[in-house]
Structure formats: C-alpha cells, structure tokens
Amino acid sequence: MADDDPGPAAYSQALSGKRVALVPMAMGFDLAQGWAAYLKREVEGWGGAFETRDPNWSIEAGAQAITDLINSDQHPDVLVVHSPDLNSYSKLLKKAQAKGIYVILIDNPANFPADAFIGSDWDRLGQLEAEAAVKACGDSSSKQIGLVQGDQVNSSSLYQYAGIMKVLAKHPDYKVVAKPDSNWDATTARNVTATMLQQNPDVCAIIDFWDGDATGTSASIRDAGKQGKIALVTTGGGEKTADCDKLESGEYTAVVTTELHKQSGDMNALIKFLLQSGQPAGTSKSYIYTLERAYTKADIKPDTCWDVKALQAGK
C-alpha cells in the first residue's frame, strides 16, 4: 500500500489561516472587482482569509490603508497592491517586506522590487495597440494617428506611449498628429478628441489609453459622424459591457484586453508559491507578464469577455 500523498498536508499546513489583502486603486471598477472575486474564492478555498481596502482613487487613502494593514496585529501574509504611480508606495512596501509580508504588485509597475509583478507588459501592450491601429488604417489611408493618453505619471500610460512609438518608428510614414491627456476622465477625453478631430479631420485611428475614458473619445468620434471611419483602439480589463459590447456595436475597433482570468490565476499561483516557499519576503523578484492580444469584432468569442455581475454572483 502506497503512503499518502504528502502534498495536501504540506499545502494545507503552509496555507491554512494565512491572510491575503488586496489594495487596488479603487474597488469601484471592473478589473478590481474581478481580481477581488477570483482571489477571494481561491484564498477562502484553501482556508485563508481575504480582505480588500478601497482607497477610491486617492493615493493618500491607499497609503493609509497599506500602513494600517502593515501595523495591524494580524497583518496580512501577502499584500497585493495596485500602485497608482511609479514611486508613491515604495517606502511603505519596503516596510511591509521588512515585516515579512510578501508584496505582489499588480497591473501598474512601480520602482520597487516586489516579490512579484503580475500584469501587463505595458510597452508590449502599447505595441499591440499601435499594430492594431496601423492595420485598421491600411496603406491607402491618411496614416495620421491620434493618441489620447492617460497622464504623465502613471506607469501604464508612460510605457504604453513608449510601446506605441516603437511600432510607429518602424512605420515612418505614420504620424502622430496629436497626443492630449485625458487624465483618465471621459469628459476630458471627449473634449480633447473633438479638438483633435477638428484640427486633423483626416485622422484614421485613435489610440485611447484606457477603456474607462475611451467612452468619451468614442462619443466624440460619433458626434463628428465618423464612427466606422476612424478606428478607435483601446485597452481594458475585458469586461463585457466595457469592451466586448462596444466591439460588437462598432464603437471600438480593437481592444487589447488585460485578460482578467489569466492575471488572477497568476496571482493565485504566486500567492500559493510564496507562502510555501519558505523564502523571506523581498528575496525573489519575478515579472509575470500576461500574454495579451488585440481583439476585434471578428475574433471575439462568447468567452473572450467576462461579466462582472456574473463573477460577483459566483457564477
């Protein structure tokens, strides 16, 4: 008779009762709600405790939440952090690691050697967007591209821009005619796009850096009567109403989705790995980039997008 598999006992001993905390930039948007739903199910599944904090887009509130978590009697064993910019949380996260808390950065990279970064390679993501835009424009087009950037501090915005410019450098006949910031706000995106289209009526594609404000950009294209004539490429979490429905309706031409289920799967795997590894916090430094692609109306399938309502309801 064979011995019992030693795996489950070791697994349960290492994990059971461990605490995982997620501090996103806000809990009110699709990706954060998706990550939280996947993490909660998994962590509670192996007998751990899961909690979230909602800084509601405030960097100060996020810093406060992280400080509270680090200093609480029952501090988390793993801290999953969605950083708003490159530097704000670096000192705090270092403190967390000094206390033995594993730190996993998600989605937005930061100037901090976390135990793992899980999310998009934003440079690559920008390249995918630019390739989709070039393809949508075509050889006979004006080859004029407009950008609606996020801001000038968020790493996802800065690296996305770098990636886009790399691809366009390979297509010297393409020109970026305007690159305003939306500050991630849909009304601003609409206003700057309106101006961009009046100044450059021949733009063949616009790349907007986030689906959260691309609704404004698409409103502006629609107002100019150019929906279908100007390609709109953006990126988002792949939520159904935010992305796939808009690809179906023609508002968006291509969306590079950040593949929520794969990203969340990676997070869960890394949490389980780190907790069993026995290595002190702050000793490993891995980048777990999500394999991404640009989806267009032609290649979306029923499971391309996810539905935040269904996910929260546990379906």
Partner: peptide, 9 residues
C-alpha cells in the same frame, strides 16, 4: 453625451 456617467468625476 458620454452614454455613461463615471462617478470618479
């Protein structure tokens, strides 16, 4: 005008 409202405003 935006076909949605974002409370982040």
């Amino acid at each position: 005008s935006l076909l949605s409202i974002n409370t982040r405003v």
